[in-house]
Computed example of a mutant assay.
Amino acid sequence: MIDPSRVGRVFPLLALMASCLAATIQPANAQATRTWVSGVGNDANPCSRTAPCKTFAGAISKTAAGGEINALDPGGYGAVTITKSITIDGGSGQVASVLAAGTNGIIINAGANDVVTLRNIQINGANGTPTPGLNGIRFLAGSSLVVDNVRIFGFSQSGIDINLNTASAVRVMVTDTVVSTSATGIFAKNAGSGRVTVSAQRVSLLRNSTVGFKADSTTGSAQLLCAISDSMVAGNAIGVHAAGGAAGGTLIQVTRSSVVNNVNTGILTDGSAAARALLSNTLVSGNDTGVASAGGGQLFTYKNNSVNGNVTADGAFSTPLTPE
Protein backbone atom coordinates (compact mmCIF):
# COMPACT_ATOMS: atom_id res chain seq x y z
CA MET A 1 0.00 0.00 0.00
CA ILE A 2 1.40 3.47 -1.05
CA ASP A 3 2.04 5.90 1.76
CA PRO A 4 0.31 9.20 0.77
CA SER A 5 2.94 11.21 2.62
CA ARG A 6 5.70 9.69 0.47
CA VAL A 7 3.80 10.49 -2.74
CA GLY A 8 3.69 14.14 -1.69
CA ARG A 9 7.46 14.15 -1.35
CA VAL A 10 8.25 12.23 -4.57
CA PHE A 11 6.31 14.35 -7.09
CA PRO A 12 8.13 17.65 -6.25
CA LEU A 13 11.44 15.79 -6.53
CA LEU A 14 10.52 14.44 -9.97
CA ALA A 15 9.47 17.89 -11.10
CA LEU A 16 12.79 19.34 -9.95
CA MET A 17 14.76 16.64 -11.79
CA ALA A 18 12.80 17.25 -15.01
CA SER A 19 13.43 20.98 -14.79
CA CYS A 20 17.20 20.50 -14.35
CA LEU A 21 17.31 18.04 -17.26
CA ALA A 22 15.51 20.49 -19.55
CA ALA A 23 17.96 23.24 -18.62
CA THR A 24 20.97 21.12 -19.60
CA ILE A 25 19.63 19.88 -22.94
CA GLN A 26 19.98 22.38 -25.82
CA PRO A 27 17.61 22.21 -28.78
CA ALA A 28 19.12 20.59 -31.86
CA ASN A 29 18.73 23.84 -33.85
CA ALA A 30 20.06 26.23 -31.19
CA GLN A 31 22.31 29.01 -32.54
CA ALA A 32 25.36 30.35 -30.76
CA THR A 33 26.40 33.99 -30.58
CA ARG A 34 30.01 33.02 -31.40
CA THR A 35 31.03 30.08 -33.58
CA TRP A 36 34.37 28.78 -34.81
CA VAL A 37 35.83 27.30 -37.99
CA SER A 38 39.08 25.40 -38.47
CA GLY A 39 40.99 23.98 -41.40
CA VAL A 40 40.60 20.58 -39.72
CA GLY A 41 37.01 21.12 -38.59
CA ASN A 42 33.81 19.35 -39.63
CA ASP A 43 30.50 20.98 -40.58
CA ALA A 44 28.68 18.25 -38.64
CA ASN A 45 30.18 19.73 -35.47
CA PRO A 46 28.35 22.34 -33.35
CA CYS A 47 30.97 24.97 -34.38
CA SER A 48 32.18 25.44 -30.81
CA ARG A 49 35.79 26.27 -30.08
CA THR A 50 36.58 22.66 -29.20
CA ALA A 51 34.45 21.21 -32.03
CA PRO A 52 34.73 23.76 -34.89
CA CYS A 53 33.11 23.63 -38.29
CA LYS A 54 34.99 23.35 -41.58
CA THR A 55 33.45 26.18 -43.66
CA PHE A 56 31.85 29.59 -43.26
CA ALA A 57 28.70 28.19 -44.90
CA GLY A 58 28.57 25.39 -42.34
CA ALA A 59 29.01 27.80 -39.44
CA ILE A 60 26.58 30.50 -40.53
CA SER A 61 23.49 28.35 -40.01
CA LYS A 62 24.63 27.69 -36.43
CA THR A 63 25.37 31.35 -35.67
CA ALA A 64 22.69 33.65 -34.30
CA ALA A 65 21.83 36.92 -36.03
CA GLY A 66 24.22 39.57 -34.82
CA GLY A 67 26.77 36.91 -33.88
CA GLU A 68 30.33 36.24 -35.02
CA ILE A 69 32.21 33.50 -36.85
CA ASN A 70 35.92 33.26 -35.98
CA ALA A 71 38.71 31.28 -37.65
CA LEU A 72 40.94 29.30 -35.31
CA ASP A 73 43.75 28.65 -37.81
CA PRO A 74 44.73 29.01 -41.48
CA GLY A 75 42.36 27.33 -43.89
CA GLY A 76 40.20 27.56 -46.98
CA TYR A 77 36.73 28.25 -45.62
CA GLY A 78 34.70 28.39 -48.83
CA ALA A 79 32.18 30.72 -50.42
CA VAL A 80 29.19 31.81 -48.36
CA THR A 81 25.87 33.67 -48.72
CA ILE A 82 24.93 35.96 -45.81
CA THR A 83 21.27 36.77 -45.11
CA LYS A 84 21.47 38.32 -41.62
CA SER A 85 23.58 40.59 -39.42
CA ILE A 86 26.89 38.86 -38.75
CA THR A 87 30.64 39.33 -38.40
CA ILE A 88 33.12 36.98 -40.06
CA ASP A 89 36.64 37.40 -38.70
CA GLY A 90 39.51 35.37 -40.12
CA GLY A 91 41.83 36.34 -37.27
CA SER A 92 45.05 38.34 -37.62
CA GLY A 93 48.40 36.95 -38.69
CA GLN A 94 47.02 33.94 -40.58
CA VAL A 95 45.42 33.12 -43.93
CA ALA A 96 41.66 32.61 -43.64
CA SER A 97 40.86 32.18 -47.32
CA VAL A 98 37.85 31.96 -49.60
CA LEU A 99 38.71 30.42 -52.99
CA ALA A 100 35.88 31.25 -55.40
CA ALA A 101 36.60 29.77 -58.82
CA GLY A 102 33.61 30.17 -61.14
CA THR A 103 31.38 31.79 -58.54
CA ASN A 104 31.06 34.73 -56.14
CA GLY A 105 33.16 34.66 -53.01
CA ILE A 106 30.82 36.22 -50.44
CA ILE A 107 27.25 37.28 -51.28
CA ILE A 108 25.38 39.58 -48.90
CA ASN A 109 21.62 39.52 -49.40
CA ALA A 110 20.50 40.55 -45.94
CA GLY A 111 17.58 42.42 -44.37
CA ALA A 112 17.02 46.16 -44.52
CA ASN A 113 18.38 46.69 -40.99
CA ASP A 114 21.21 44.16 -41.08
CA VAL A 115 24.89 45.02 -40.62
CA VAL A 116 27.60 42.73 -42.01
CA THR A 117 31.29 42.94 -41.11
CA LEU A 118 34.03 41.05 -42.97
CA ARG A 119 37.46 41.21 -41.35
CA ASN A 120 40.88 39.59 -41.83
CA ILE A 121 39.94 37.47 -44.84
CA GLN A 122 41.65 36.67 -48.16
CA ILE A 123 39.30 36.18 -51.13
CA ASN A 124 40.90 34.59 -54.20
CA GLY A 125 39.15 34.52 -57.59
CA ALA A 126 41.68 32.14 -59.15
CA ASN A 127 42.48 34.47 -62.02
CA GLY A 128 44.16 32.69 -64.94
CA THR A 129 42.26 29.45 -64.46
CA PRO A 130 39.58 28.30 -66.96
CA THR A 131 36.81 29.36 -64.51
CA PRO A 132 37.85 32.46 -62.55
CA GLY A 133 35.58 33.81 -59.84
CA LEU A 134 32.88 36.41 -60.59
CA ASN A 135 32.89 38.90 -57.70
CA GLY A 136 34.88 38.77 -54.50
CA ILE A 137 32.19 40.42 -52.35
CA ARG A 138 28.73 41.00 -53.84
CA PHE A 139 26.53 43.29 -51.74
CA LEU A 140 22.91 43.02 -52.88
CA ALA A 141 20.92 44.07 -49.80
CA GLY A 142 21.44 45.18 -46.21
CA SER A 143 21.84 48.31 -44.11
CA SER A 144 25.64 48.47 -43.80
CA LEU A 145 28.72 46.61 -44.94
CA VAL A 146 32.12 46.91 -43.26
CA VAL A 147 35.16 45.46 -45.04
CA ASP A 148 38.26 45.63 -42.84
CA ASN A 149 41.73 44.27 -43.62
CA VAL A 150 40.62 42.08 -46.50
CA ARG A 151 42.66 41.00 -49.55
CA ILE A 152 40.61 40.48 -52.72
CA PHE A 153 42.15 39.51 -56.05
CA GLY A 154 41.68 37.71 -59.33
CA PHE A 155 37.97 38.16 -60.14
CA SER A 156 36.49 38.44 -63.64
CA GLN A 157 33.99 41.11 -62.57
CA SER A 158 34.52 43.17 -59.39
CA GLY A 159 36.53 42.75 -56.26
CA ILE A 160 33.75 44.49 -54.31
CA ASP A 161 30.44 44.74 -56.19
CA ILE A 162 27.93 47.06 -54.47
CA ASN A 163 24.90 46.27 -56.60
CA LEU A 164 21.74 47.48 -54.85
CA ASN A 165 18.10 48.11 -55.69
CA THR A 166 16.64 49.87 -52.68
CA ALA A 167 14.85 53.01 -51.53
CA SER A 168 16.66 52.85 -48.17
CA ALA A 169 19.94 54.54 -47.31
CA VAL A 170 22.91 52.15 -47.33
CA ARG A 171 26.45 52.59 -46.01
CA VAL A 172 29.63 50.80 -47.07
CA MET A 173 32.96 51.26 -45.26
CA VAL A 174 36.21 49.76 -46.57
CA THR A 175 39.44 50.14 -44.56
CA ASP A 176 42.97 48.72 -44.75
CA THR A 177 42.06 46.60 -47.77
CA VAL A 178 43.75 45.64 -51.06
CA VAL A 179 41.67 44.95 -54.19
CA SER A 180 43.75 43.90 -57.18
CA THR A 181 43.91 42.09 -60.54
CA SER A 182 40.15 41.96 -61.07
CA ALA A 183 38.15 43.65 -63.84
CA THR A 184 36.95 46.39 -61.46
CA GLY A 185 38.29 47.03 -57.99
CA ILE A 186 35.28 48.59 -56.23
CA PHE A 187 32.02 49.19 -58.11
CA ALA A 188 28.93 50.91 -56.67
CA LYS A 189 25.42 51.46 -58.02
CA ASN A 190 21.82 51.54 -56.81
CA ALA A 191 18.99 50.90 -59.25
CA GLY A 192 16.59 52.34 -56.65
CA SER A 193 16.38 55.76 -54.99
CA GLY A 194 18.18 55.26 -51.67
CA ARG A 195 21.33 57.24 -50.94
CA VAL A 196 24.49 55.11 -50.90
CA THR A 197 27.64 56.25 -49.10
CA VAL A 198 30.93 54.48 -49.76
CA SER A 199 33.95 55.32 -47.59
CA ALA A 200 37.36 53.91 -48.53
CA GLN A 201 40.33 54.67 -46.27
CA ARG A 202 43.83 53.21 -46.53
CA VAL A 203 42.70 51.16 -49.51
CA SER A 204 44.92 50.00 -52.39
CA LEU A 205 43.25 49.50 -55.78
CA LEU A 206 45.91 47.93 -57.98
CA ARG A 207 46.14 46.58 -61.53
CA ASN A 208 42.43 46.14 -62.17
CA SER A 209 41.87 45.74 -65.90
CA THR A 210 38.90 48.14 -66.28
CA VAL A 211 38.80 50.61 -63.39
CA GLY A 212 40.03 50.90 -59.82
CA PHE A 213 36.98 52.62 -58.28
CA LYS A 214 33.71 53.31 -60.11
CA ALA A 215 30.42 54.80 -58.87
CA ASP A 216 27.62 54.66 -61.44
CA SER A 217 24.29 56.48 -61.09
CA THR A 218 23.20 56.07 -64.71
CA THR A 219 20.33 53.80 -63.59
CA GLY A 220 17.90 54.68 -60.79
CA SER A 221 17.62 58.00 -58.99
CA ALA A 222 20.00 57.36 -56.11
CA GLN A 223 22.73 59.70 -54.93
CA LEU A 224 26.10 57.96 -54.62
CA LEU A 225 28.37 59.81 -52.18
CA CYS A 226 31.86 58.31 -52.13
CA ALA A 227 35.04 59.29 -50.26
CA ILE A 228 38.52 57.89 -50.90
CA SER A 229 41.22 58.96 -48.46
CA ASP A 230 44.84 58.02 -47.67
CA SER A 231 44.73 55.48 -50.49
CA MET A 232 46.64 54.25 -53.56
CA VAL A 233 44.97 53.84 -56.96
CA ALA A 234 47.62 52.54 -59.36
CA GLY A 235 48.10 50.41 -62.46
CA ASN A 236 44.41 50.18 -63.41
CA ALA A 237 43.01 50.98 -66.86
CA ILE A 238 41.14 53.97 -65.34
CA GLY A 239 41.87 55.01 -61.79
CA VAL A 240 38.66 56.64 -60.50
CA HIS A 241 35.45 56.94 -62.56
CA ALA A 242 32.32 58.90 -61.62
CA ALA A 243 29.40 58.19 -63.98
CA GLY A 244 26.25 60.33 -63.69
CA GLY A 245 22.74 59.77 -64.99
CA ALA A 246 19.68 61.87 -65.73
CA ALA A 247 18.02 61.24 -62.36
CA GLY A 248 20.75 60.03 -60.03
CA GLY A 249 24.02 61.66 -59.09
CA THR A 250 27.59 60.64 -58.24
CA LEU A 251 30.14 62.48 -56.13
CA ILE A 252 33.58 60.98 -55.49
CA GLN A 253 35.89 62.91 -53.18
CA VAL A 254 39.57 61.94 -53.24
CA THR A 255 41.71 63.22 -50.37
CA ARG A 256 45.35 62.67 -49.40
CA SER A 257 45.72 59.91 -51.99
CA SER A 258 47.83 58.89 -54.98
CA VAL A 259 46.17 58.22 -58.34
CA VAL A 260 49.20 57.20 -60.34
CA ASN A 261 50.45 55.15 -63.28
CA ASN A 262 47.02 54.14 -64.54
CA VAL A 263 47.00 53.08 -68.18
CA ASN A 264 44.40 55.55 -69.44
CA THR A 265 42.88 58.26 -67.22
CA GLY A 266 43.57 58.91 -63.57
CA ILE A 267 40.26 60.67 -62.70
CA LEU A 268 37.30 60.56 -65.10
CA THR A 269 33.80 62.04 -64.81
CA ASP A 270 31.20 61.50 -67.54
CA GLY A 271 27.57 60.93 -68.43
CA SER A 272 26.02 64.14 -67.11
CA ALA A 273 26.62 67.15 -64.88
CA ALA A 274 25.61 64.89 -61.99
CA ALA A 275 28.95 63.09 -62.33
CA ARG A 276 31.37 64.93 -60.03
CA ALA A 277 34.84 64.37 -58.62
CA LEU A 278 36.45 66.60 -55.99
CA LEU A 279 40.17 66.37 -55.23
CA SER A 280 42.13 67.63 -52.24
CA ASN A 281 45.82 67.08 -51.38
CA THR A 282 46.07 64.33 -53.98
CA LEU A 283 48.84 63.31 -56.40
CA VAL A 284 47.76 62.56 -59.98
CA SER A 285 50.80 61.52 -61.98
CA GLY A 286 52.09 58.94 -64.45
CA ASN A 287 48.68 58.29 -65.99
CA ASP A 288 48.16 58.66 -69.73
CA THR A 289 45.76 61.54 -68.93
CA GLY A 290 45.62 63.00 -65.45
CA VAL A 291 42.04 64.28 -65.13
CA ALA A 292 39.31 64.32 -67.77
CA SER A 293 35.57 64.90 -68.14
CA ALA A 294 32.99 64.15 -70.84
CA GLY A 295 29.26 64.56 -71.33
CA GLY A 296 29.03 67.38 -68.79
CA GLY A 297 30.95 65.66 -66.00
CA GLN A 298 32.50 68.02 -63.46
CA LEU A 299 35.95 68.15 -61.86
CA PHE A 300 36.43 70.21 -58.69
CA THR A 301 39.72 71.06 -57.01
CA TYR A 302 40.66 72.70 -53.73
CA LYS A 303 43.77 74.00 -55.55
CA ASN A 304 46.15 72.01 -53.37
CA ASN A 305 46.69 68.94 -55.59
CA SER A 306 49.74 67.84 -57.59
CA VAL A 307 48.60 67.06 -61.13
CA ASN A 308 51.69 66.74 -63.28
CA GLY A 309 53.93 64.25 -65.01
CA ASN A 310 51.13 62.52 -66.87
CA VAL A 311 52.08 61.04 -70.25
CA THR A 312 49.76 62.67 -72.80
CA ALA A 313 48.08 65.44 -70.81
CA ASP A 314 47.57 66.51 -67.24
CA GLY A 315 44.03 67.68 -68.00
CA ALA A 316 42.19 70.50 -66.32
CA PHE A 317 39.65 70.95 -63.56
CA SER A 318 36.33 72.60 -64.37
CA THR A 319 35.83 74.39 -61.04
CA PRO A 320 38.37 75.58 -58.45
CA LEU A 321 37.12 75.83 -54.87
CA THR A 322 38.45 77.82 -51.94
CA PRO A 323 39.12 75.57 -48.93
CA GLU A 324 37.48 76.67 -45.69
Results as ranks from 00 to 15, higher is better:
residue 100 A to F: 02
residue 57 A to E: 14
residue 266 G to K: 05
residue 297 G to C: 02
residue 212 G to H: 09
residue 92 S to F: 07
residue 76 G to H: 08
residue 129 T to G: 10
residue 128 G to R: 06
residue 208 N to F: 01
residue 227 A to K: 03
residue 30 A to L: 12
residue 189 K to Y: 06
residue 134 L to A: 09
residue 64 A to Y: 00
residue 302 Y to V: 04
residue 126 A to T: 11
residue 8 G to H: 08
residue 245 G to V: 08
residue 277 A to W: 03
residue 67 G to L: 11
residue 226 C to R: 00
residue 225 L to N: 15
residue 94 Q to E: 08
residue 128 G to M: 06
residue 42 N to M: 11
residue 25 I to F: 06
residue 10 V to S: 09
residue 45 N to H: 14
residue 27 P to T: 08
residue 72 L to Q: 14
residue 267 I to P: 00
residue 249 G to C: 06
residue 215 A to R: 02
residue 146 V to Y: 01
residue 293 S to L: 05
residue 270 D to C: 01
residue 247 A to N: 15
residue 103 T to S: 14
residue 223 Q to P: 02
residue 271 G to I: 11
residue 307 V to W: 04
residue 47 C to A: 14
residue 35 T to H: 02
residue 141 A to E: 09
residue 193 S to V: 05
residue 67 G to A: 08
residue 152 I to Q: 08
residue 306 S to C: 00
residue 275 A to T: 07
residue 130 P to Y: 07
residue 144 S to A: 15
residue 72 L to M: 14
residue 190 N to H: 08
residue 235 G to P: 13
residue 197 T to V: 04
residue 259 V to R: 02
residue 324 E to C: 01
residue 224 L to G: 03
residue 116 V to A: 03
residue 211 V to Y: 11
residue 88 I to V: 11
residue 103 T to N: 08
residue 307 V to D: 10
residue 118 L to V: 10
residue 29 N to V: 08
residue 300 F to A: 12
residue 96 A to M: 05
residue 59 A to D: 03
residue 149 N to W: 06
residue 273 A to R: 03
residue 60 I to F: 04
residue 241 H to C: 09
residue 111 G to Y: 00
residue 86 I to R: 01
residue 198 V to Y: 06
residue 260 V to P: 01
residue 124 N to F: 07
residue 13 L to E: 11
residue 43 D to T: 01
residue 111 G to T: 01
residue 224 L to T: 03
residue 130 P to F: 09
residue 312 T to A: 14
residue 216 D to P: 11
residue 242 A to K: 02
residue 262 N to P: 12
residue 236 N to L: 05
residue 158 S to R: 02
residue 126 A to E: 09
residue 94 Q to C: 10
residue 14 L to N: 10
residue 73 D to G: 07
residue 67 G to P: 05
residue 104 N to W: 01
residue 6 R to M: 12
residue 6 R to V: 15
residue 211 V to N: 08
residue 312 T to L: 10
residue 12 P to W: 09
residue 121 I to F: 15
residue 132 P to D: 12
residue 220 G to Y: 00
residue 108 I to K: 00
residue 310 N to Y: 05
residue 231 S to Q: 05
residue 213 F to H: 02
residue 142 G to Y: 00
residue 262 N to K: 07
residue 191 A to P: 04
residue 31 Q to I: 06
